[in-house]
């Protein structure tokens, strides 16, 4: 299937560019491309509901929020070491040490890939998808039935979680000194 490789390539390249960009606005947009490709993969996996939810929730809500924050903070470019030295948030000694954690991160990620590829290579030929099972996973009705019966407690808990997150976000992002009361409106 050519489509799998197209979507996989888009997802990987876009994700790589997300972390290679210095401008967060471009990062956010490239992440949308990556998530769009993932949504295509969900369609290939007979999960149209997950594919659409991926677009609605990630592209339509979460990444809009990111874009909003990037635009409002108006700090598009990542600080370089010179900026940090000027801001006196780091000194010259730490500046020299900063390469360490980065190298460590890259090494960790590479090691992770190598390990996973090694492990996955040992299970060759496993997990061919059964075409007959396509209908049982693609049905929205089936998802709804399981979600609202077997997982109903978890579902209710997520609603509380979202409420808490909403209140928390409002409290955290509010300015500390109380703004003067707005003029009374009708």
């Amino acid at each position: 299937m050519l489509l799998f490789y197209v979507f996989a390539l888009v997802a990987v390249v876009a994700s790589l560019l997300v972390i290679a960009q210095r401008n967060p606005v471009y990062s956010v947009l490239l992440l949308i491309a990556s998530f769009g490709a993932l949504s295509g993969l969900y369609v290939l996996l007979d999960a149209p509901f997950a594919a659409v939810i991926q677009i609605v929730v990630y592209a339509g809500a979460i990444l809009v929020l990111f874009l909003f924050v990037v635009m409002l903070l108006n700090a598009p470019h990542e600080d370089t070491d010179e900026d940090l030295l000027r801001l006196k948030t780091i000194n010259a000694a730490t500046s020299r040490l900063r390469g360490g954690p980065m190298l460590f991160g890259v090494a960790l990620a590479s090691l992770f890939i190598v390990e996973l590829l090694w492990a996955l290579n040992r299970v060759t030929g496993a997990g061919r998808f059964d075409p007959a099972a396509a209908d049982s996973v693609s049905s929205v009705a089936a998802i709804g039935r399981v979600l609202f019966t077997d997982y109903r407690f978890a579902f209710e808990v997520t609603s509380v979680l979202i409420l808490v997150a909403m209140v928390g976000a409002v409290v955290l992002a509010r300015r500390e000194e109380a703004a003067p009361a707005p003029p009374a409106r009708k």
Partner: peptide, 23 residues
């Protein structure tokens, strides 16, 4: 077979055109 959700998804994408134009 999830047409209604697709419409909703595309409607939620169209905000990007306007936000990016503005920025």
């Amino acid at each position: 077979n999830v047409a209604v959700l697709v419409i909703f998804a595309i409607a939620s994408m169209s905000v990007y055109g306007i936000v990016l134009a503005g920025w």
